Each structure stands twice: as C-alpha cells, then as structure tokens.
Simulated scan of single mutants.
Amino acid sequence: MRARRGRTLTEADAALWRQVARTVKPLPGRAPIEPEPVPEPAPAIATETSALAVAALSKAAKPASLAAPPLAPIERRLRTQLRRGQQSVDAVIDLHGMRQNEAHLALCAFLRREQAHGTRIALVVTGKGGPAPALFGEERGVLRRMVPHWLRLSELRPLVLGFEEAEQRHGGGGALYVRLRRLREHGP
C-alpha cells in the first residue's frame, strides 16, 4: 500500500488503516470502501513502537457511540432552587460506615435503580471524615474522596449527567448532588 507523496506504509500502518476502514460508516448514498486485501506477512519481528502505535490508535478507532458522555455541571437555577428548598432531592443514599468496595457496589446499584425510577436529583452522603488524625495508616474521608472519582468512571457516565457538592442544608462537603440522565426508551 502506498501513501501520499510516494511514501510506502509499513505493514503496521497498513494493518491499522484496514482496521479503521472496517469501522467507518459510509455517508448516505455512498458505497462502503473495501479495504485492500491483506498480503501474507513476511516473518518479521514487529518493532515495539509500531506495536504501541497500533494499540494506541486502535483504542482511538472505536466508534463514537461507545465513548462516555461528558459530565455537565448542575445548572445555577437548579442549585438555587435546591438551596432555597424550592426543589427537593428525589432519592438519598448514605454510604457512612461502608468499606470502599461495599460503597462502590451500593452506589452503582442505587444509581441504576433510581435512573429506572425516573429520579432526577439524588443525594449521595459520603460523610466528611473525622477531624481526628488517622491512626496506624488509616485514611479519613476515603469515601468523600473516592465517590467523585467513581462518578467520573465510564461505567457510571451513562447514568450520571453531573454532580456537585451539596448545599449546607443537605450535608455540605460530606454530600453530593448527583443529576441523573433520563433513561432512554428504545423504540421500534
């Protein structure tokens, strides 16, 4: 396979192009481009850089539909309504006293269940962690630090539209407002 300006593509580049060409959806009214047939590769040792390039670009070549949706901050109007008590929180989960793995599983199940019920705003109480110094290597406020990280993970992004620290009346720094995405119904 030849590239523009007379350069010849390496076998790794050609394999990458064939992989990308198979994943591309043609424009309406256009026929799909068939990738060139794969010639029998000569036994050669692949260089580390070309293997890394193929791996990196194959991750980037995934269809856009698999990409996690972006997070959005909670709108100012909604925050004001929450602060004034004009808008209530639809559901609450308290993660106090749970270990990280228990809290993570409980949070995932809670968010899936609440999205199915049509919940718009959920309150996730993590606790602030105590002011006392940690003893014997124990960390304080682990859930307070980990829950925002979990909410940003790709497994929860289809559920979570955005999140922010709660107002003082709902727990302040020890709680988060989580805005859930609407569950899309798949029609015919």
Score class of each variant (00 low, 15 high):
100 Q>N: 03
72 A>T: 15
165 E>D: 04
60 A>M: 09
188 P>E: 14
116 A>M: 09
180 L>V: 02
187 G>E: 10
74 I>G: 04
125 V>P: 00
17 W>C: 05
109 A>L: 09
49 T>V: 10
20 V>F: 01
39 P>T: 00
140 R>V: 14
149 H>F: 04
87 Q>L: 14
158 P>N: 07
37 P>T: 12
4 R>T: 06
67 A>F: 02
51 A>N: 09
9 L>C: 12
79 R>Q: 14
159 L>G: 01
97 G>K: 08
145 R>Y: 03
141 G>E: 02
96 H>A: 09
12 A>R: 00
182 R>A: 07
66 L>H: 04
82 L>S: 01
85 G>Y: 05
133 P>Y: 06
7 R>Y: 13
188 P>S: 15
184 R>G: 02
112 R>W: 15
57 L>R: 03
137 G>N: 01
130 G>S: 15
148 P>D: 10
18 R>H: 06
126 T>D: 08
37 P>I: 02
83 R>L: 11
116 A>G: 12
63 P>V: 01
149 H>E: 12
35 P>F: 01
170 H>D: 15
97 G>F: 10
162 G>R: 02
162 G>T: 05
59 K>S: 04
32 P>F: 05
78 L>W: 11
21 A>R: 01
43 P>T: 11
14 A>C: 07
145 R>K: 15
49 T>A: 11
156 L>G: 10
184 R>S: 03
176 L>M: 08
103 A>S: 03
154 S>K: 13
144 R>M: 02
61 A>N: 03
171 G>M: 09
101 N>I: 07
171 G>A: 07
25 K>I: 13
82 L>D: 00
61 A>P: 02
140 R>L: 12
95 L>D: 02
20 V>G: 00
2 R>H: 08
1 M>P: 01
162 G>C: 03
146 M>T: 07
156 L>H: 03
127 G>A: 08
117 H>P: 04
156 L>I: 05
32 P>R: 15
50 S>M: 09
142 V>E: 06
41 P>S: 11
188 P>C: 09
151 L>C: 06
25 K>L: 11
92 V>P: 04
